[in-house]
């Protein structure tokens, strides 16, 4: 547990020293979400109908934008090597990285999303559900994202490749996350969508860290 806290603290401190990185991700998220509205036109009913999908797609892209750095910086300066030979289990290292990534991107994205929802004329109950669905769904982005980021370490064209690998894996989050909001908008119970989102979170927290650990070992081999 001490090791986990130590590693999370280190990542948060590093992020604080490079504040630009986090802010850029958030700004990117807001801009992408706003671009859709500009491209589609100002019709409130149409905007309302597509709000959930737009916010979720923008969140996927924003989270992905922040992922290539997750392990690459530590690999470049040799820290990753030390993390792997340290007495900390690799799983703890990976879990700390994932937790820090979520605190730095997923959580802020979820908190900013209701503001975008307002731009899209979402009613209060849908705004709340957007927040809830993002709070359940964004950890999945970090969990599977860590696996993807570890897999492309040292690969040619890692950035684009990461998108190619991760976006298909992110589809269920997108479908059920946006589905929950759309259901709430239409006046149906969004419970089933949130349940499936939760199930996907459980599965990801099993396979994501495992894959990330295995991929890190491969990357440093």
């Amino acid at each position: 547990m001490a090791g986990f806290a130590l590693l999370v603290r280190r990542d948060l401190r590093l992020a604080l020293r490079r504040r630009g990185d986090i802010v850029n991700v958030l700004v990117f998220f807001v801009i992408v979400a706003s671009l859709f509205a500009l491209g589609v036109g100002p019709e409130p009913n149409q905007l309302r109908a597509m709000a959930a999908g737009v916010v979720w797609v923008a969140a996927l892209l924003a989270a992905m934008l922040s992922l290539p750095r997750l392990f690459a910086a530590d690999l470049a300066d040799g820290t990753l090597e030390q993390l792997l030979v340290s007495p900390q289990p690799v799983l703890v290292v990976v879990a700390a990285k994932i937790a820090a990534h979520w605190l730095l991107t997923g959580l802020p994205l979820a908190l900013v999303a209701p503001l975008i929802g307002l731009q899209y004329h979402l009613p209060a109950n849908a705004l709340g559900l957007l927040l809830v669905s993002l709070l359940i769904g964004t950890p999945v982005l970090s969990l599977l994202g860590a696996a993807g980021a570890a897999l492309v370490l040292g690969a040619r064209g890692a950035g684009v490749l990461l998108g190619l690998l991760l976006l298909p894996l992110y589809v269920p989050v997108l479908v059920f996350g946006a589905g929950a909001v759309t259901a709430a908008l239409a006046g149906i119970d969004p419970g089933a969508h949130l349940s499936l989102l939760g199930a996907f979170l459980a599965v990801s927290s099993l396979v994501g860290p495992w894959a990330a650990c295995a991929a890190l070992r491969v990357a440093l081999d």
């Binding site: 059920f176 149906i188 419970g191 089933a192 969508h193 349940s195 199930a199 996907f200 459980a202 099993l206």
Partner: peptide, 25 residues
């Protein structure tokens, strides 16, 4: 402990999926 945690996650996922099928996705 790892095996127990893994199984617990699988059980949680299965329970949530079953719960969802009573709903309307």
């Amino acid at each position: 402990a790892a095996i127990v945690a893994g199984l617990a996650l699988i059980v949680i996922a299965a329970a949530l999926v079953l719960n969802a099928f009573r709903g309307n996705v």
